[in-house]
């Protein structure tokens, strides 16, 4: 028993080690959302993904790229699952540079499904100079690149407030209670009804935040649904085979245990 307690103590210390990041250095307690993709069998809310794409496209895309997504991903299973026609129509709204053609000239053409998402700026320097020196990060894996993940991005979108009286803010700097250091160079991107949802959902700021974060989660982890599905099967299989091996082991060891 004493040993058990020791092991328990050590394990908890170890787990504490692993989870230290959760406790440390947080500006404010993050808003918690019961994301549909969080649980053991978690899946994305398809409609929310589609709305989230709309929010990304109409609001975020003017500054933020998602350079690792391709238009074909929009049709893939486990994603927003737009039809191929819808995705082709989406892609054709964007111009990509291709070439060189037979005369050596580069030319533009409408994007195809196989193209990556078109970036708002040609390079990081252009992105910085257009945004007062602040680089709008690529959003392909943004959810995985921030402590707190989906909850953090969601909180950040809703975390704009008037600064405390004793805080001086420069031009182009905004107060956000969830941002590290509380200062952010992005102005509040969302406000009620800034987009008009085609499915009739009311475009409140909370709703848009939820939808766009769902979209970003999918962008960062496009195989999440498959991963959850596989995980369930693998673990069930491992439990079954463990039981079988356990009884095989008993059987084999019984040969000597009864004989000694």
């Amino acid at each position: 028993m004493k040993k058990f307690l020791k092991i328990l103590f050590c394990t908890s210390l170890l787990l504490f080690n692993i989870n230290y990041t959760k406790a440390a250095e947080k500006s404010a307690e993050l808003l918690k959302v019961d994301w549909s993709f969080k649980s053991f069998f978690g899946k994305f809310d398809r409609a929310s993904l589609q709305r989230g794409y709309q929010v990304y496209n109409e609001v975020c895309a003017s500054c933020h790229s998602v350079k690792y997504l391709s238009y074909r991903n929009l049709t893939e299973k486990g994603g927003p699952e737009f039809t191929e026609e819808e995705a082709k129509a989406i892609a054709s709204n964007f111009e990509v540079t291709d070439g060189p053609d037979s005369t050596g000239e580069m030319f533009t053409r409408p994007a195809r499904l196989s193209d990556k998402f078109v970036m708002p700026y040609a390079n990081d320097e252009e992105a910085k100079s257009a945004n007062g020196g602040a680089y709008p990060p690529d959003m392909s894996v943004l959810v995985k690149a921030r402590k707190g993940g989906a909850d953090y991005i969601y909180s950040l979108l809703l975390g704009y407030e008037d600064p405390p009286a004793d805080m001086e803010l420069d031009d182009g700097v905004y107060y956000n209670k969830f941002m590290y250091g509380n200062k952010i160079k992005m102005s509040a991107p969302l406000s009620d009804d800034i987009v008009e949802y085609s499915d009739g959902t009311k475009a409140s700021t909370e709703q848009m935040s939820r939808d766009v974060v769902t979209f970003l989660m999918w962008a960062a982890e496009p195989h999440l649904e498959q991963r959850h599905k596989f995980g369930f099967r693998v673990i069930i299989y491992l439990i079954i085979i463990s039981i079988l091996v356990y009884f095989s082991m008993k059987k084999i060891w019984s040969r000597i245990e009864s004989k000694v």
């Binding site: 959850h228 995980g231 491992l238 463990s242």
Partner: peptide
């Protein structure tokens, strides 16, 4: 196999 169950939890969840 018991070890793999722990491993699988990390990989998949």
């Amino acid at each position: 196999l018991l070890f793999l169950i722990v491993f699988a939890f990390f990989v998949f969840y």
